[in-house]
C-alpha cells in the first residue's frame, strides 16, 4: 500500500465516521410522500385555474356576442393561459428529467431552466403592463360611472375596484423582486460553474 493510499484511508475513516442520525431515512421518506402529494395538488389546482379561466373567457365571448373589448381581453387572457400551461407542463417534465444526468449535462439543464424561468417571469411582467393598460382606464371609468353605487354599497366598490387594484399593486411589487432574485440566482450559478471549471 502506498503512502498516499494510507493517507486516503485515514481520511476515509474520519469522513465515514460522520453522520448516522437515527430515523433520518424514515422521516425523509415520509416528508417526500407529503411533498409529492403537495406538488401534485398544486399542479392539479393550477391546471383547474387555467381551465376555469379559459372556460370563463369563452363564455364571456359568447355572452357578449363578440364585443371588441371583451374579445381583446379574452384573447390576452387565453394567450397568457396558454403560456402558463406550457410552462407548467415543461416544468413538470423538467423536474422529472435530468436529475441523474452527468454534472456537465445537469449544469446545462439548470442553465436552461433558469433562463426559461426568467423568460416566463419577464413575460408575466410584460403581461402585467398590458393588463394595467386595460385595468387602470376601466377603474377610472368604474369610479366615475358607478360612484353613487359604490357610495351606497361600499362592499361592491371594494369587491370590484379595490381587489383589482390591490392585486395589480401586489404584482407590480412582487414580480420585479422575483425577477431580481432569479437574475441573482443565475449570476451565482454562473459563478459556481466558473469555479467548477477552473477547479
Amino acid at each position: 500500500m502506498t503512502e498516499q493510499d494510507t493517507e486516503l484511508d485515514g481520511w476515509r475513516q474520519g469522513w465515514q465516521a460522520l453522520g448516522g442520525r437515527a430515523d433520518l431515512a424514515r422521516s425523509l421518506a415520509e416528508r417526500v410522500q407529503q411533498d409529492g402529494r403537495r406538488l401534485q395538488r398544486e399542479l392539479v389546482t393550477e391546471m383547474a385555474w387555467a381551465a376555469a379561466s379559459s372556460a370563463l373567457c369563452v363564455w364571456l365571448l359568447v355572452d357578449s356576442g363578440g364585443k371588441p373589448v371583451v374579445a381583446v381581453a379574452c384573447a390576452g387572457t387565453l394567450l397568457f393561459t396558454g403560456a402558463w400551461v406550457t410552462r407548467l407542463l415543461t416544468l413538470k417534465y423538467g423536474a422529472a428529467s435530468g436529475a441523474d444526468s452527468g454534472l456537465d449535462a445537469f449544469v446545462e439543464l439548470t442553465r436552461r431552466r433558469l433562463a426559461d424561468e426568467l423568460k416566463w417571469q419577464l413575460f408575466r411582467r410584460r403581461s402585467l403592463d398590458v393588463a394595467a393598460l386595460l385595468i387602470v382606464p376601466w377603474t377610472l371609468w368604474a369610479l366615475t360611472e358607478r360612484y353613487s353605487l359604490y357610495r351606497a354599497e361600499p362592499w361592491i366598490g371594494v369587491a370590484e375596484v379595490g381587489l383589482l387594484v390591490a392585486l395589480l399593486v401586489g404584482l407590480f411589487i412582487h414580480l420585479p423582486r422575483k425577477i431580481r432574485a432569479l437574475e441573482a440566482a443565475r449570476e451565482r450559478f454562473e459563478a459556481l460553474v466558473d469555479e467548477r471549471t477552473l477547479g
Binding site: G10, R12, Q13, W15, A17, G199
Partner: peptide, 30 residues
Amino acid sequence: ERKERGSQLLAATRALPLGHRQVLTLLLEG
C-alpha cells in the same frame, strides 16, 4: 478521534472549489 478528524475534514472540504470538493467527497465515500 474519528469525529474530530471528520469535522476537520468537513471544514476543509467546504473550503475547496466545487469541482475539487465533489471529487474529494466522492473519493472519501469510497
